[in-house]
Design a protein around this nucleic acid. Structure first.
Length: 275
DNA sequence: ATGACGTCCTGCCTGC
DNA sequence: TGCAGGCAGGACGTCA
């Protein structure tokens, strides 16, 4: 599931391949993946547009095109965007194929069909539900420990669901949230209001660490994730909590447990991360 | 306003 | 062995 480090990895792998190329044509075989405008409009409007650059915001990929247009992509759970030769066999669950001006293709494959594409002018982008209310980027300088402390004070409820809330922090998903909480030694069910300043500082530190290490290792491939060249990531080798049910804790050796919190599987050490 | 829950979707895993 | 059913999960809509 592409979270911030995986999306960043995709951006970095596609950027040198796609910058300066034009979209020639879009072949849409599953129209519902086009969120806005309609699939027909989408195909017509994207044809001939030039890719100026590619960036990331939270878990969104953003293709900046000429004529002030943006192609916004959210890969959700199982989506992938791969740059390849038109001669390569088309993978199962491929729903969208862009032909590029150098003869290559950019293909969108998504087993669960949850991913979505939007083609929007600059202004409409910042009015789009889900995008407009994104919280701060956790690797940007303005996401400080002091900021996190202050924001935690005005929120209620359990910590983990809050960290997954994209309007609170943009880009964290289930994997990196569990890893950050484990490193900070904070229980995912802790009531937000009970966090001490020291814990908030530790959490801030841990979030930065796991995201930076995730990016340095080109993302986490538990099952599906591949980058823009079709290559898996490497951070799964370094996971300490996520998916480690029954395995010894990196810090104390106690068995990692799994528990549903807010409808999501959460992995944590019951000894290090006491509630 | 806020939190909880259902929805989308397919492949994999479990249990009979 | 084969099949049915449950589970996984990000974001968003709906409901309380």
């Amino acid at each position: 599931m592409p979270e911030l480090p995986e999306v960043e990895t995709i951006v970095r792998s596609l950027q040198p391949r796609l910058t300066g190329l034009n979209f020639v044509e879009a072949l849409v075989t599953l129209p519902k993946v086009i969120r806005t405008p309609g699939a027909d409009d989408f195909k017509e409007k994207i044809s001939g547009k030039k890719i100026i650059t590619i960036s990331r915001r939270g878990k969104y990929l953003l293709f900046h095109l000429n004529e002030k247009l943006n192609l916004l992509v959210h890969l959700r759970m199982t989506g992938s965007l791969v740059y390849c030769s038109p001669e390569e066999a088309v993978a199962k669950h491929t729903h969208l194929i862009f032909s590029l001006s150098n003869g290559y293709q950019l293909r969108y494959t998504d087993m669960r069909q949850f991913g979505r594409f939007s083609l929007l002018p600059n202004q409409a982008l910042h009015e789009l539900a889900g995008y407009k209310d994104l919280g701060p980027e956790p690797l940007e300088a303005n996401f400080t420990a002091a900021y996190l402390k202050k924001e935690l004070q005005r929120r209620r409820g359990r910590l983990k669901p809050l960290l997954l809330d994209q309007t609170f922090i943009a880009g964290l998903g289930n994997i990196y949230t569990d890893e950050a909480l484990h490193r900070a030694k904070i229980n995912p069910e802790r009531q937000v209001s009970t966090l001490t300043p020291e814990e908030a500082t530790a959490l801030h530190q841990a979030i930065g660490e796991v995201l930076r290490e995730g990016i340095a290792n080109r993302g986490t491939t538990v099952r599906d994730f591949i980058d823009g060249n079709g290559q898996p990531g490497g951070f799964q080798m370094f996971l300490r909590a996520y998916g480690k049910e029954g395995r010894p804790c990196h810090y104390c050796g106690a068995n990692i447990v799994r528990k549903k919190i807010g409808g999501r599987s959460s992995y944590f050490c019951p000894a290090c991360q006491k509630n």
